[in-house]
Design a protein around this nucleic acid. Sequence first.
DNA 1: GGGAAGCGCAACCATTTGGTTGCATATCGC
DNA 2: GCGATATGCAACCAAATGGTTGCGCTTCCC
Lengths: 115, 115
Amino acid sequence: MASTSCRRPSPVFAALGDPTRVALLERLRAPGGRNLSALAVGTGMSRQAVSKHLGVLTHAGLVRASSRGRDTVYELDAAPLAEAAAWLDEFRALWDARLDRLDTFLHQLAPEETP
Amino acid sequence: MASTSCRRPSPVFAALGDPTRVALLERLRAPGGRNLSALAVGTGMSRQAVSKHLGVLTHAGLVRASSRGRDTVYELDAAPLAEAAAWLDEFRALWDARLDRLDTFLHQLAPEETP
DNA sequence: GGGAAGCGCAACCATTTGGTTGCATATCGC
DNA sequence: GCGATATGCAACCAAATGGTTGCGCTTCCC
């Protein structure tokens, strides 16, 4: 098979494709969790907009939301980040392997032309 | 500073967020490059749609396009993938460091309650 | 030279996305 | 109980996205 073995984490990449969501993740990197209002302040957006972005992040598995009485607490979950990094590394590794095989193939064909 | 040091590779993540584009990248992983028509066949899309996706990938730096006579040859450039993976690792590392500091802080506060 | 192949550009359309506002509901604290 | 706080849901809107078709230009090859 020429494809990577693990599943492609497209939702994670799509979630990370928006700088606003990345900024939210950086705010969530502090331990302890934040509620929606605390996350929305200073972003220049309404709470509802922030809530939508948090929904995308939650759907991608990057954020866990737990209802805590009156407000919902959002926490970072970095496990999908590790999966995404692993996919990137695997993709690159397979690509490099292809190039290495091409290199040896060219060497076998014409050793003097590929120093 | 609480932010990661390197710039956030949002365009790369946005480009990888579409499964169609990831499939194109996997087709491009074979060495030698492909022209537009070869990439479009079998995708169920028109050449123009594939060209737009290739434009997004090129803009993200994941693909290099070189004009080769009548047709343009597209080649994979995996360097942004490495940058993206590095960003993911750095983000996770900083987050883990925060958690570690919290852990030691809690230990200093009440050693018997955090086994 | 002339037909065919390959590509880019522009116009166009449907759907999704990113954002807003308004309102209803649940919860906390006095 | 009651006011204030925190959230979710629905409707709505502008802009971006993903796709199409058509046309024109360049390049190959016979």
